[in-house]
Nucleic acid binder design. Structure first.
Lengths: 142, 142
DNA sequence: TAATTAAGTATCTAAATGGAAACTATTACT
DNA sequence: AGTAATAGTTTCCATTTAGATACTTAATTA
């Protein structure tokens, strides 16, 4: 949990300047980070990706069992989106009954690593978040 | 855009094993990554944080102008949550008319840096996503 | 003929979220 | 008394999203 130096802050501001420079106001509403996060940061998508990081190949009903509480509809939706954006592959074997296998792509693995980095960061800072939440709860400032 | 090695994949799987080990099924539904991302990965929160990374101090109406399209209601909600979880500070000066200033905390700066890392990753891979989306559009597999 | 299995679809309802617009509080100024 | 400025809050409506449940397809087996 190293503190961020003024130098690092300046670096970030510089990067932001570049970003802002290449974007007008309307585009900012549609920012690239958001574009990716929107897809892959919702609870179910994250869980799916985590499980596929742990079990390299998973089938629909197996995922449904593991990703506890997800409905058919949402699981199938999420899988479709994750496939469309290249996070996972879907391989269908026309047996009877049909067999379909899902697995992470290289891109998916790369994203998973980012998620893991984030996890480590969150873990590092979790006391901060919890402490802040508790400090603010039941306190009205105005 | 280096490829992920089998070794790296194994490392991730190992970390996941640890994570899964410490969580039962119900807790997985409430995963720590999700907990943070849910708050700070929505479009408006990200934009607020990005702007506060660029302009170190911002007031309500100024933010409203910059974060194009946000409503009073949503801006005030997001600011409250971001404050509650320790991303930003809110400093009120009891002048007339009242003056309120928002700024990133150290934790907020740290998160901003993670967001910038993510941006770089997204930029690196954006062709992959776009290509994948285009490849899948208009194609029905079943 | 009926049941079984995998991988979803389809449908309907309930809940959460988002946005627009009007309103509030406070004090100084005209 | 009326206006202006800042920082919100409140209300209402529309859209989005989520979840539960039933249904589908296709071949195999009892």
């Amino acid at each position: 949990m190293e503190t961020i130096t003024e130098n690092q802050k300046l670096k970030v501001a510089k990067k932001l300047k570049k970003m802002f420079g290449h974007m007008d106001r309307r585009q900012m509403e549609y920012c690239p980070i958001r574009d990716v996060m929107a897809l892959a940061s919702d609870k179910w998508s994250i869980l799916i990706i985590l499980y596929l990081g742990y079990y390299p190949v998973m089938r629909f009903n197996y995922l449904k069992k593991r990703v506890y509480g997800i409905s058919n509809k949402v699981l199938s939706e999420r899988l479709k989106h994750l496939e469309t954006d290249g996070y996972i592959t879907r391989t269908m074997y026309p047996e009877v009954p049909i067999r379909v296998e899902y697995a992470l792509t290289e891109f998916g693995h790369s994203y998973l690593q980012k998620l893991m980095d984030l996890t480590e960061w969150v873990t590092e800072y979790s006391e901060v978040i919890i402490a802040s939440r508790q400090a603010k709860s039941g306190v009205q400032t105005n």
